[in-house]
Each structure stands twice: as structure tokens, then as C-alpha cells.
Computed example of a mutant assay.
Amino acid sequence: MENQTYSEHVLLLEGLLVTNQSSYPAFILLLLVYILTMVSNIGLMVLICTERSLHHPMYILYCNLPLNDALGATAIVPHLLSDMFVASSERSIRYVQCVFEAFCAHVYGTTCHTILMIMAFDRYVAICNPLRYTTIMSTRMVVKLTVFAWGVAFLLVGILLGLTIRLSRCRRVITNPYCDNASLFKLSCEDVSINNIYGLAFTVLLLGSSIGSVTLTYLKIATVCVMSKNRVLNSRALKTCTTHLAVYIIVIASGVTAIFLHRFPQWSDHRKLSAIMFHVVPPGLNPIIYGLQTKEIRQKIYSIIHKNEVSLR
């Protein structure tokens, strides 16, 4: 079966590997994390959209992050939960559904970086060119940056998966907790050199531009702060940049760990776990970091909680 061309449109998906004893605790834990992730991310989006005092470029740009985090978690977690109590030999998924899941997963990973890149640019303008901030970060510029963040991801991932779906299939087992591009093109017995070359170039371009632009941005911000010797400016820069940098480090650490473990087949179980963590940890931590560290958002949350407590008395 594995060495013959497989013409049907149903694949076998490995899913999340857990023992019978740990299936219920794993299900409950993953479900709770998913619920908290969705509530916190959607709650932040609603808060920013409904509070006129938060209708500033920084927060409008930030809305892209919880939206992408909700997409990243929803792309794989519900499917993992639904297959938790299904025997591994019976976990099936349609090919079209698998491609769509892979598309969402890769768009999430790519957009994580593009969004954080434009948020770094926003912080650079706010700190290094405060007098021109409203002019540079106009509504038109915010729309352009948002379209850039999502458009680049859709284009690059579309090409990535376009190169994969052109291949014929001679296998049907996805040896991964969820569908991704590498698992899909490994189903083919054709030459996949083009897929490997584009995938490597895609990863190098994305990580290189992301790390390079964020590093350059923070070096310029640090230079301005050192040169100015303004305590107020330095304090504001520290508060606004610490939050962004914490989120960025979490995304980089989660993504690089999964990529690194790909190179060591003997650590396949660790790689599969890290792949799931990439769709769980950043989406779960990002709203907490921004909600607690950003003064304006924290004050709005406190005021809403206080109003609810007063109304209940």
C-alpha cells in the first residue's frame, strides 16, 4: 500500500500520541488552555475595538496579534482534541482538509513574524520620531502595514503549498500531530528537491528578515535612548519595548526549537511536542503579557472588572 500510488482522498493522521492513562488529563488540560487562549485573545480584540481611547495605531496594529493567535490555536487544537480518544489507526483526515490545516498552520507561523516586525517599526517611530508619529503612522499607513503582514504570509505560504499539491501521492500516513507542508510532500515518491529548496529559502528569508529588522530597530532605539539621556523617554521606551520583546522571544524560541528538532530524527517525539507547543504557548501567553504590561489595556480591564463588581453589589 505504501509503495503504490494512493488515489483516494483520505489520509491517516498520527495526531497526539498519549497513553490511555494520560488521555483524559491531556484532553482536559489542552481544552482548558484552548478555552483560555480564545477567551483572552478575543476579549482583547473586543476591548480594543470597543474602547475609543484605545483607537491608536499601536493598539490597532496589536489587534492583528490576538487575531493570528486565535487562528493558530484553532488551526490544530480542536482537531487534536477530537482525535484524542480515537485509535491512532483510525485517525483519518481528507486530503483537502489536511492542506487547509497546513495552510492555516503556516500562515500563523509566518504572520507571527510579520506582525511583530511592523509592531517593532511602530515602536521605533514612536520613540525615535515622536513629533512625526501621527504623521507617519496614519490610518493609511496602518492599513498598508496590516495588508503587508497578512499579504506576505498568504503569498509565501500559497506558493509553498502550491509546490506540494502538484505532487502525486504514494503514501497516506501523516507522521505528525497535525498537517504541515513537510508531512504533505513526504507523501510523494517524486523528486521533492524544489520543495526542499523553496522551504529552506522561505525559512531563511522569514527568520533572517524578522531577526534582522527587530535587532536593527532595537539597536536604533537603544542608541536614541543613550544619546538623549532623558529618563522619561528611556522609561517609556523600556515599558513599551519590554512587552514586544518578550512576545518576540517567545515566538522565536518556540519556532526555532521545532525547526532545530527537525534535524534529529531520534528526537521525533520531542519535535512533535514542540510543534504543538508552538500553537499553544505563544497564543496563550501573548494576551497575558500585553494585558498585564500595557498600562492603558490594564487600566481598561481593571475598570471593567470594577464596574461589574459594583453592579453586582
Rank of each mutant, 00 (worst) to 15 (best):
E2P: 02
N3R: 10
V10K: 14
L16P: 00
L16C: 12
T19M: 01
N20P: 08
Y24W: 14
F27Q: 02
I28K: 10
L30H: 01
L32F: 10
V33L: 14
Y34G: 05
L36C: 13
T37E: 06
V39Q: 07
N41T: 05
G43D: 03
L47P: 06
I48P: 02
I48R: 08
C49W: 09
H55E: 07
C63P: 00
L71A: 05
L71M: 15
A73M: 06
I76N: 04
L80S: 09
S82W: 10
M84P: 05
F85T: 07
F85N: 06
S89K: 10
E90W: 01
S92V: 10
R94W: 00
Q97F: 03
A102L: 06
T110H: 11
H113A: 10
H113C: 14
T114C: 07
M117W: 02
M117P: 02
M119W: 08
Y124D: 07
I127D: 07
L131E: 14
R132L: 13
M137Q: 13
S138T: 09
T139C: 05
R140H: 11
M141H: 06
M141K: 09
V142N: 05
K144W: 14
L145C: 12
L145H: 07
T146E: 01
V147N: 04
W150N: 14
A153E: 01
V157R: 04
G158P: 09
L161A: 02
T164H: 02
T164Y: 02
L167T: 02
S168M: 03
R169Q: 13
R171N: 13
I174M: 12
N176Q: 13
P177I: 06
P177N: 09
N181L: 03
L184I: 06
L187K: 04
L187Q: 06
E190F: 08
S193T: 15
Y198W: 13
F202H: 13
L207A: 04
L207C: 09
L207I: 05
L207K: 04
G208H: 09
S213W: 13
V214P: 06
T215H: 03
T217P: 05
L219V: 15
A222I: 11
V224H: 08
V232L: 14
V232A: 14
R236I: 10
T242I: 03
T242Q: 09
H244Y: 03
H244S: 11
Y248H: 12
V251P: 01
V251S: 12
I252Q: 05
I252S: 06
A253R: 01
V256C: 11
A258L: 04
I259D: 04
L261A: 02
W267I: 00
W267N: 05
S268W: 09
K272W: 02
K272S: 15
K272E: 12
L273H: 01
A275C: 08
M277A: 15
M277L: 15
F278W: 06
F278D: 03
V280P: 03
V281Q: 01
L285W: 01
N286V: 15
I289E: 05
I289Y: 07
I289S: 08
Y290S: 04
T294G: 00
T294Q: 03
K295T: 12
E296V: 11
Q299R: 13
K300A: 09
I301P: 00
E309Q: 13
V310W: 04
R313A: 11
R313H: 11
